[in-house]
Amino acid sequence: MRLGEALVHKGFITEDQLQQTLKAQLIYGGHLGTCLLEFGYVNESQLGRVLAETFEVGYASIEMFQDINPAIIDTISRKVVERCHVIPFGLDDKVLQVAMIDPRSVTALDEIAAFTHYKVVPWVAPEARIYQAMERYYNIPRRQRYIMVCRDLDLETSAGREQPRRQYATGDPPWQSNLGEISAELEDRRLDDPSAEPEPDAGVDPIHDLDQVSKTLCEAQKMESVTSTILNYASRTMARCILFAVKANEAHVLDSRGFPSIEEGGEPPSFPVGPQGIFGLTLGREDYRGSVPDEPSFKAFYQTLGVDVPAEILVFPLYLDDRLVAVLYGEAGGGLMLDPDNEEYLRLAKMVTLSMSLVVIKKKILAA
């Protein structure tokens, strides 16, 4: 049973609250438990106990992170901690006790065991507490969102109340900074008249190397240069790809390759962003790679795009300041499968939001 289902089953939250939280998770990212704490639907103890039952491991409460022996901290390097989101807190007879966000991650557990040469026993802790401990013991900075979550949890605990305050019942959460400028840039790009000026890369040979992509993105002055560079590179191995801009819970087609119905002109389509449908496939994941579920909402998506349902798709949610700002979608087309090198796609996806931020920063510098 998944975390949300377990919380509903135990009566800690309602089905409506779960659906609202899933939608928030898709938009703001992070673990479902973090969103539940921010909405105030569960307290830290409830979340920890149900996490432990769901993963079938022990619950590492905040008390276990107090004054951890430096020798135990030194058993795992900063780089491994940053990759695996893990905090060692106990060591006895070659058995290392560690707290994790995802104690079922075989890849992370194998890496920790290989690095420490100990038997590793995983425990689970809320995402915000893991990041808090990573900052305290390894000087790995937390994002503002997680600082605020822990602050509110600590305030509620000291006040003797069981429920944390709701942070973003409506509107954008308070930790976000320059999203307005980026949203405006993306909106300007979406509304651009394609006849007004040629694409900046028109007539230029496609880039075949990710290092060259990164250099080109660093030099980009406009958002259209970013979108063109990303999609031109992606289309090397993807028969069809789209970059969506996300605004007000709607995903708008920003640019695309391989979709005649979009590229022939007219108003680009938009789609709702929610737990159901293409975008919901990425819930709680860094990306989604796999087949398309045989459900009406997915069929409607491809009907709108004017293409058949593909055999395999890749969907990357692109977050900035813990807010979904764009989505990169790709497919091989027809019954074909995509290139097996997922790491290359991951690198490309990470470049998108970084380069979008860079364009905004450059404009601010030039306007100063």
Results as ranks from 00 to 15, higher is better:
Phe279Trp: 03
Val352Thr: 13
Phe298Gly: 14
Pro164Phe: 04
Ser297Asp: 15
Pro173Trp: 00
Ser291Phe: 12
Arg151Gly: 14
Asp102Ser: 09
Tyr302Met: 03
Phe271Asp: 02
Asp192Trp: 07
Phe316Arg: 07
Ser235Glu: 05
Pro126Asn: 05
Arg166Gln: 09
Lys79Trp: 10
Asn43Arg: 05
Gln66Trp: 05
Ala125Tyr: 04
Ile242Asn: 09
Val246His: 07
Asp110Val: 05
Pro194Ser: 03
Ala300His: 15
Val50Tyr: 01
Ala248His: 12
Asn249Cys: 10
Tyr329Val: 09
Ile182His: 09
Asp287Tyr: 15
Leu3Cys: 00
Ala251Arg: 04
Leu318Val: 15
Asp341Phe: 10
Gly40Glu: 03
Thr216Pro: 02
Ser355Leu: 00
Val95Glu: 09
Met1His: 03
Glu264Arg: 14
Gly265Trp: 08
Asp322His: 15
Tyr41Met: 08
Asn69Thr: 00
Ser61Glu: 10
Thr14His: 01
Ala332Thr: 07
Arg49Asn: 08
Val80Thr: 14
Leu91Glu: 04
Ile101Cys: 11
Tyr302Ser: 05
Ile27Phe: 04
Glu5Val: 05
Glu38Asp: 09
Asp16Glu: 12
Gly30Lys: 02
Val204Gln: 11
Ser228Lys: 02
Val359Phe: 00
Arg165Lys: 10
Pro198Ala: 02
Gly33Gln: 05
Thr107Trp: 08
Ala133Pro: 03
Ile182Asn: 09
Gln163Lys: 13
Ile313Met: 11
Glu344Ser: 13
Glu344Gly: 14
Ile278Trp: 05
Arg236Tyr: 08
Val307Gly: 14
Val359Leu: 00
Pro310Thr: 10
Leu26Pro: 05
Asp193Ile: 07
Pro310Ile: 06
Tyr288Phe: 15
Ile242Met: 11
Pro260Trp: 00
Glu127His: 14
Ser77Gln: 03
Ala52Glu: 01
Asp255Leu: 08
Val57Gly: 10
Gly30Pro: 04
Gly203Trp: 04
Glu181Ser: 12
Glu224Cys: 05
Pro173Gly: 03
Met337Lys: 12
Glu199Gly: 15
Asn69Trp: 01
Ser291Val: 14
Gln212Leu: 10
Thr75Arg: 12
Ser158Leu: 13
Arg2Asp: 14
Ile182Asp: 04
Ser195Thr: 11
Thr75Leu: 09
Gln17Ser: 00
Gln17Met: 01
Met1Glu: 01
Arg83Met: 08
Arg2Ile: 01
Pro275Tyr: 06
Glu15Pro: 04
His208Phe: 12
Gly29Leu: 06
Ile72His: 03
Val120Thr: 01
Ala349Val: 05
Asp341Met: 09
Leu314Glu: 12
Pro293Thr: 02
Gly258Cys: 01
Ala114Leu: 11
Gly11Cys: 00
Asp209Glu: 08
Glu263Thr: 15
Leu7Trp: 09
Tyr146Val: 01
Glu187Cys: 02
Met238Leu: 13
Val360Ile: 07
Val360Arg: 12
Cys150Pro: 08
Leu314Gly: 15
Asp110Cys: 06
Thr304Lys: 15
Gln20Leu: 12
Leu366Glu: 09
Asp152Leu: 10
Asp205His: 09
Leu354Arg: 14
Val98Trp: 07
Trp175Leu: 04
Met238Cys: 15
Arg2His: 13
Asp209Leu: 02
Ile365Asp: 04
Phe259Ile: 01
Ala202Cys: 07
